[in-house]
Amino acid sequence: MSTVSAAEAAKFGALAEHWWDPEGPMRPLHRMNPLRTGWIARRVEAAGLAWRGLRLLDVGCGAGLAAEAFARRGAAVTGIDAASEAIAAARRHAEQGGLAIDYRIAAPEELAEEGALFDVVVALEVIEHVADRDAFLAALATLTRPGGLVFLSTLNRTARSFLLAKVGAEYLLRLLPVGTHDWRAFVTPAELARALRRAGFAVTDSAGMTMAPLTGTWRESGDLSVNYLVAARRA
């Protein structure tokens, strides 16, 4: 069974040409990206992993915002996405920046079937868009070497996230295109932790990501009620 939702892939593929516009429809991701990639980088380094030669997989990479940030740190990055338009945009932008990133149109289970293995796997703002959450995490586990790290960022399913991330971001502030998110697909930290354990991971850390409404800047916080990050280790 594919973990890809064709409707979700098409929705984000349609935004590919504007992905790298910092004031376009991906503006929240541009502003969030330094926080989430920096948070991940500190935990990679705390685990004693060197960036040079580190094999990192970015699942649901879109046009490459996070993939490029990790490649600039020295990692050997593979980025996969189900949207061909996003991968085409990612390849163009990486080439323009002189970055050697292996971008592929693929679902994680396809790479898992090939026997691919990575030191670090990231899936940022992805799990709330997949067709099968458990199958998706099982594929990530197969792709992560024993003792390797996985990082996810997603949205909590709370009344506050409905007001801020759905109604506020899409309908009132127009920070995201209407229909970007389905609040019913948001994942609570407890649900995600249980699903990660079923897949063979142990959660090691988590943090909230909070946006300042007046400036649009993001900071790490202890508030996981809307956006949050999770780190886990493969058994």
Rank of each mutant, 00 (worst) to 15 (best):
T142I: 08
A86C: 09
A76D: 14
V130G: 09
D119Y: 03
S225C: 09
G200N: 01
G48Q: 01
L65W: 03
A88R: 15
A71R: 14
A90S: 10
G115Q: 12
R233P: 04
G79A: 13
A212Q: 10
G53W: 09
E17S: 15
M211I: 13
A193Y: 08
R43A: 02
P146C: 01
R91E: 10
T188I: 05
E113C: 10
D21Y: 09
D223E: 07
G208E: 02
E68T: 01
R92Y: 10
R198E: 13
A7T: 10
A16S: 03
L164W: 13
S5E: 12
S153D: 08
R219W: 09
L192F: 11
V126H: 06
L152T: 13
T217P: 00
P28R: 03
G13S: 03
F162V: 10
A231P: 12
L176F: 06
E68M: 12
R92W: 11
A138S: 15
L176P: 00
E113A: 15
P22L: 12
D21C: 11
A232I: 03
V150L: 13
F162E: 08
A82T: 01
R27D: 01
A83D: 04
H30K: 12
P177C: 07
I101H: 06
G208T: 11
P28G: 05
G64H: 07
A71P: 04
L196D: 07
A138I: 08
R184C: 00
A10L: 02
V187Y: 03
D223M: 09
A193K: 13
Y103L: 07
E110C: 02
L29M: 13
S153V: 10
R72F: 11
S225G: 14
P189R: 00
P22W: 14
E170P: 11
L54V: 08
V167T: 15
T142M: 03
P22D: 09
A86P: 00
A165I: 04
T215V: 04
R36P: 00
D134K: 04
L49F: 06
P108D: 05
D223S: 12
G38N: 10
V226Y: 02
G48L: 07
A202P: 07
L111M: 00
L196G: 06
R42V: 13
E95Y: 06
S5F: 06
A141P: 15
R197M: 08
A41K: 06
H18N: 13
A7D: 15
A199V: 02
M26L: 15
A9Q: 13
H18K: 15
I101Y: 00
A88M: 03
P34T: 14
T144K: 04
T217W: 04
A169M: 11
